[in-house]
Amino acid sequence: MTTATTTAASSMSYAVRDSTTMLRRNLRHMQRYPSLTIMLVGQPILLLLLFVYIFGGTLGNGLGPGGAGGRAEYVGYVTPAILLITITSAILGTAISVATDMTEGIIARFRTMAISRASMLTGHVLGTIIQTAFALAVVLGVALLIGFSPTADVGEWLALVGVLLLVTLALTWFAVALGLKAKSVETASNTPMVFTLLPFVGSGFVPAESMPAWLRWFAEYQPFTPIIETIRGLLLGTGIGDSGFLTVGWCVLITAIGYFWAKSLFQKERDR
């Protein structure tokens, strides 16, 4: 008889091994069908170009007192929101692939194998994080090419990476739950759209002060506003105030909700 501690240790190492196996499976899927990834990376880039080149001239001039910076200033203003939209765009892919996965017979096979239950979900989460990191790098690269000039120092860059990772983790777990909840792949591809709209109803594209009072109230208190303010503050060195704490708080909350919701949905699927 093995002791309880060795059993726990080996089940822990199996959980890690199974998750990396599932991650490899998801990366292979992405590689084999790159169209989804390309669409998900292309969408934020398209939005960036649209806002900077079509609306940017006018919007940049309206950014506030003394603001006549036009397009050049607007690139700096909008890039944080576009980075956030890169993440919301990527989690759309997570919801779709989780929902698709659940319709596949192989999930039943996984469930009859002695593997870590969570690995079926963590594989998706890890896959999305890698995909998102790649997408963020590409989008940031495009922003730099069209004139974005961040002033962040090394510490701020590191903090930025941390914040983006935290936001990705939170939204990904939430998307996993949405993907499990969705009755069909179509539903799964619609629900997370809300997240892509949220930065618009915040300080992502225009300052919240320019909105009607009721909308401004929502814009100020919704989670994406402090997240955008934090990203913006770190990139442009304008300081983040209490946005940093709010961001971490919201992320922890969303991660917890997404994680436990996903876990219970996945469990329920079995008892069906």
């Binding site: 499976r25 899927h29 084999r32």
Partner: peptide, 10 residues
């Protein structure tokens, strides 16, 4: 199982 349980993308 009765229904195919292979990964169709691999």
């Amino acid at each position: 199982g009765q229904f195919s349980a292979v990964d169709s993308l691999l």
